[in-house]
């Protein structure tokens, strides 16, 4: 990793990084690169987000689903931890709450593989600053 020396460097860096992210999103295979974020702040971890994270990584691999599982901070839905956000290529992100291993299994089999929604979706009810 080289040092960033100027604002130009940073802009270039950002473009490179964004390309990577865009590539992920525009993958043409329907199943390629599903992105899953697991809310792993203290409250998430306390309710078992770490186990869900491990379960997802292990099982997505086992079932040959190309997915990127990342940890993220607190999404704010403390009443419904553990919370995960699943973004399928080209689709809006969907947030699932109260995720257990059984639920995670259902999400992989039904939502990720077959596109069926499963119970327990948390409707997003905030705006981000990017939408301004």
């Amino acid at each position: 990793m080289g040092k960033i020396k100027s604002l130009e460097d940073l802009k270039k860096k950002k473009q490179d990084l964004q390309k990577k992210v865009d590539l992920r999103e525009r993958a043409d295979q329907a199943e390629a690169y599903v992105q899953i974020k697991v809310g792993m702040a203290t409250s998430g971890i306390a309710s078992g987000a770490k186990e869900i994270y491990d379960f997802l990584v292990e099982n997505l691999d086992k079932r040959n689903v190309e997915a990127v599982v990342t940890q993220a901070g607190d999404m704010g839905y403390s009443f419904a931890e553990p919370t995960i956000e699943v973004t399928k290529p080209g689709e809006e992100p969907v947030v699932f709450g109260y995720v257990t291993k059984e639920k995670a299994d259902e999400i992989i089999e039904k939502y990720i593989k077959r596109g069926e929604l499963v119970d327990g979706i948390l409707p997003q009810n905030y705006r981000t600053i990017d939408e301004e």
Binding site: D74, N125, Y126, I129
Partner: peptide, 28 residues
């Protein structure tokens, strides 16, 4: 109603991997 919450301080919370500076840079 969906404008009732707007995330400025929490803009990246639950969105990026907190252990990756690259994701932070990708979000400006």
């Amino acid at each position: 109603f969906y404008k009732k919450q707007i995330r400025i301080a929490l803009r990246n919370c639950g969105f990026i991997d907190p252990e990756s500076i690259d994701e932070y840079i990708a979000r400006d």
